[in-house]
Design a binder for these strands. Structure first.
Lengths: 342, 342
DNA sequence: GATAATAATGGTACCGGTAACAAATTTGCT
DNA sequence: AGCAAATTTGTTACCGGTACCATTATTATC
């Protein structure tokens, strides 16, 4: 009983065509344009393909058609859950349309970002979805020359590269401030990181709070939260609490530019003997799931990251289909989720 | 005033070569094998490339070399944070080696899984990293034929397809049971979902608990936690608590096969007037960050998902480099993190 | 039944790199 | 200087699909 080593190294379309007794071209059409081939012929080709275990070479196809059916997703980091819903939205929407996605991290580093973008362009992605970074104007020409559709996410830049699916981070800060004011708190502080988006939120918060006449408003920049190469805003809670306790006149309400920061701050405050919201009110950002299941439920700002992702993908796909997109900018709605911490 | 449309459609290597006054081949080598070209020539080529804005076509390169420098990552879902550390590990390790990653979701559906794998194979990925699913034996031949390295993650299947970077889910359950026993609790229950990995953990937990002589051990399967297409184990807390309260003889300790379940259960229990761990001890799984920053700190089992990802990637890369891999299976260490909920 | 219109199929070239080998140039050595 | 060895550069073919156009088979029309 001889062992049959099936070295089916790789089956090409030519072999399928030969087996089916048709030309390569007809075999190709049987897959790509089923309507352009007689039903009987098509079935013969498909049967042959199945029998031989043919898997079309998408690289060769991409090489020939100049279309990869791949989208590139550029995000700062996979560390935090901030972007996970967005990526999920992109993935779902892409999959539905038969596209695959390449994901690359910039690590908040310009050089790395360039490298990732360069790589994706080199891989001939059909479109690029990237979380907006501060430096974008100079890329505009680069993408336009290549006729590569781009959507920027998580911000609405003043000078967008191309399309946008995001929101104004200043608006998030403003929304938080409005809520703090509406709840009747007369002083507040916003704790934020050095990230562009967070700084924008902090600015918006202060601007709005002052406009509404809050007696005292502060903006507190957290030091770098990097611990052995990882950034975790959870670790900020300790610092936030320490800062608050160290103040002579404590803010009555605080806004943290991320739920993870608000979350850890909450427990630090409780441990320090302060009550939330009786002594200090607390508002986070991004509607993390844990915040909604903790008790008291965390007040936060919901960003529909999933919709932001699907919308962005749809914009790309619409552009690729040749139709003119309805609008180059899609604004994601922000929603304040009032929990029990304010 | 005529509008000058700069249609720099695409610069090819041939154009760069012409500009530099060398052959295509020499230009190619200037990039791929810098040592094989005279320094002066190389610089001339690189200068020409830069001047023309040349971006190498990685599709053409892949087509020619039969090597894409892309790895495929197949995970059940991007919904939950379970796999995010692993993906991050894969991404980091891949990027370091100059590889890019395609990510696809199976949605815990066999057909979808097949489609994703088929697509990745069609895209000629150099390697495949996939979270182990229950059905794998039949794929073995498929991948071997194509000489495609595969690593399965998050489990150590009895009949692995190829390489493995994971752990025995039964071991996680056992570890939890040992801890529960060591803490002196004499009865326990494990709450788990219908997922294969969770069932394995539950089995391990019961097995070990019984072996250690716990008076009473129960296994409780949670109903499907799907809500408008999304699975969230956070929503299980309510059910877990209700189940516990409904019992005549409550388990003294409970193990949830995911931190999100343990987390929401904790708050439900507290709200129901039970104290943790005085009335009921609680142990989760997967060392989610929020669990470590909440107070009381959640007892959990740490899986080094990041290392699992980097290790898996290294196994693939080693295989691709031609060296024989040290071992086909890498076992990720499990570690019990004792918080204050047990 | 003959011709025109339409549908189905086939032939050829090409996408942009690189492998493999050949040719030319430089270097080392007596 | 002269020749072998080593280095550098060039030539050709090819990877596996698909676009484009030519050809053949089928159907419709009078």
């Amino acid at each position: 009983m001889g062992r049959t080593v099936t070295k089916t190294v790789k089956v090409t379309l030519a072999e399928v065509a030969a087996k089916a007794g048709v030309s390569k071209m007809t075999a190709s059409r049987a897959f790509a344009q089923p309507g352009a081939v007689r039903a009987e012929t098509r079935e013969r080709v498909l049967a042959a393909a199945k029998r031989l275990g043919y898997v079309p070479d998408l690289i060769a196809s991409a090489f020939s058609t100049k279309t990869t059916k791949v989208l590139g997703v550029v995000i700062p980091t996979l560390d935090v859950s901030t972007f996970s819903d967005t990526v999920r939205g992109i993935s779902d929407a892409s999959a539905k349309a038969g596209y695959d996605i390449l994901i690359g991290q910039t690590k908040y580093d310009d050089e790395t970002e360039d490298r990732v973008i360069q790589a994706f362009v080199g891989r001939r992605v059909d479109g690029l979805l990237m979380v907006a970074s501060e430096r974008q104007a100079d890329m505009k020409a680069f993408f336009r020359e290549r006729d590569l559709p781009v959507v920027q996410l998580w911000d609405i830049p003043k000078q967008p590269i191309d399309m946008v699916s995001g929101f104004l981070n200043r608006d998030a800060g403003k929304l938080a401030a409005k809520h703090v004011h509406a709840q009747g708190y007369s002083s507040a502080a916003v704790y934020h990181t050095d990230l562009y988006r967070d700084r924008q939120q902090a600015d918006g918060f202060v601007w709005q709070a002052k406009k509404l006449g809050l007696a005292q408003v502060e903006k507190v920049l957290m030091p770098s939260l990097e611990t052995h190469g990882r950034v975790s805003e959870f670790s900020a809670g300790h610092l936030v609490c320490k800062d608050i306790l160290g103040r002579t006149n404590r803010p009555r309400a605080i806004y943290c530019t991320d739920d993870s920061m608000a979350f850890s701050t909450y427990f630090e405050l409780i441990e320090a003997g302060l009550r939330v919201p009786e002594h200090i009110a607390l508002c986070g950002f991004n509607n993390a799931e844990y915040g909604q299941y903790m008790r008291p439920q965390l007040t936060t700002i919901d960003v529909d990251g999933y919709a932001m992702g699907t919308k962005a993908t749809e914009m790309i796909l619409t552009r690729l289909s040749g139709e003119p997109p309805h609008s180059g900018t899609h604004k994601t709605q922000l929603k304040l989720i009032c929990g029990q911490t304010t």
